[in-house]
Nucleic acid binder design. Structure first.
Lengths: 218, 218
DNA sequence: CGGTTTCGATACCGATCGGTATCGAGTGAA
DNA sequence: TTCACTCGATACCGATCGGTATCGAAACCG
């Protein structure tokens, strides 16, 4: 006996092959420049297989982005690991975030292109907003936890700090894509350190406190 | 006499109408989703007029982005105006930058989409890199000038601070596009303040510098 | 084994794309 | 007034798009 050899791949296998192929081609060409034929060809299948497993192009794109966003959120919280020293924690987190910018460069491109779609499509926008809010909440929690661990008074609210970290992650990815030399390896960590270090004049989020008297010039 | 009435618009006029129309349609639909017919129709012309004034679609796109980048660079340096008080300067700069994020929201979308194209097209990439380097230099100079004016020792090198400001501008634009409520109006200014305020433990970018002894300054 | 269902390949559709060839009206100079 | 030239409208091209209809083989099931 040759065993229970499948003559036809299971539906789940086919679907996964399509998703993986689409991910590959999206990373190579971008979402807008990729046709269903490109995806099917990459998967060694035809358009028929795609339409048998997905409602259409939009459905396929949405599925892929959802999956990647889910996978990515889990890693995002792991960045703010529990380290004993605050300086080490910030520089380490910064290093990991910058490393993520490089290793997930294609992902950043995809996300920003998807963001562009979301800006013009309410349905896509609401989906992205929901995912993004969840990611923001996760990062916020991780930051708050790390701050409590090191017993530091953050000059910014954890939720605001989370927004800044996410913004920097995307923004620095853009700058690094344009000119890698413009974004030195320690920059993210340096900025992080400044953002978590309490100032002599108190919280920046509480502007009622007077400015530093030493530098006051009229 | 009815005067020297032009029976046919000048070439420059037609070219400008096309550029303006393309800018409008790009802002509405994005670059990738806009066809030459869309542009021509918006301008009240036809494809023939476009091909008579531009080498092709890519040439038109490049022309528009170049023009906008040039216009934008001039405004970027004006953000760091000369204000007497440092706190006021940072919050004012932050407010202007955030206002720019809102008012130029469509521009940010266009720039990020163009960035996505540049990531996959070496020619576009080099052009964008050159423009971006110039913008970075301009912001760097403006920051250095403002720092000197206020007599403050920046914890980060002006050129690095410029990169962070540019990154935050794009990154916060993304977050604000997803969820405006996630980016409070004072956030940019608050972050800026933290980034220009010397820390008690010394400069993060230049650890050799000793801790700041009070307000003493060279 | 046989009838039914599933699934993906194939062929095909209308629409639209960027780009080109052509042509006629508008234009400036002789 | 004439003539060479400019410039944009028009018609058209091949290619390609997302999507659909169909059909045969494999798989499932009683």
């Amino acid at each position: 006996m040759t065993g229970p050899q499948r003559r036809r791949p299971s539906r789940a296998e086919t679907r996964r092959r399509i998703i993986d192929a689409a991910t590959t081609v999206f990373a190579r060409q971008g979402i807008a420049a990729t046709s269903l034929n490109d995806i099917a060809a990459e998967a060694g299948l035809t358009k028929g297989a795609v339409y048998s497993n997905f409602a259409g192009r939009d459905d396929l794109v949405l599925t892929i982005m959802e999956e990647h966003m889910f996978e990515r959120m889990e890693r995002a919280t792991a960045v703010f690991a529990e380290l004993a020293d605050l300086d080490e924690a910030t520089s380490e987190a910064g290093a990991r975030l910058l490393a993520g910018i490089d290793s997930d460069a294609t992902w950043h491109r995809l996300l920003l292109e998807y963001w562009g779609l979301a800006m013009r499509n309410p349905t896509v926008h609401s989906g992205l907003a929901e995912r993004r809010a969840r990611l923001r909440a996760a990062v916020t929690a991780a930051i708050g936890k790390a701050a409590a661990l090191h017993g530091v008074d953050l000059p910014l609210a954890p939720e605001h700090l989370a927004v800044v970290v996410l913004a920097l992650s995307n923004g620095l990815a853009v700058e690094r894509g344009v000119d890698p030399a413009a974004v030195p390896p320690t920059l993210f960590g340096d900025v992080l350190k400044l953002l978590v270090t309490p100032t002599a004049s108190g919280s920046a989020a509480d502007p009622r406190r007077p400015a530093r008297p030493g530098t006051a010039r009229t």
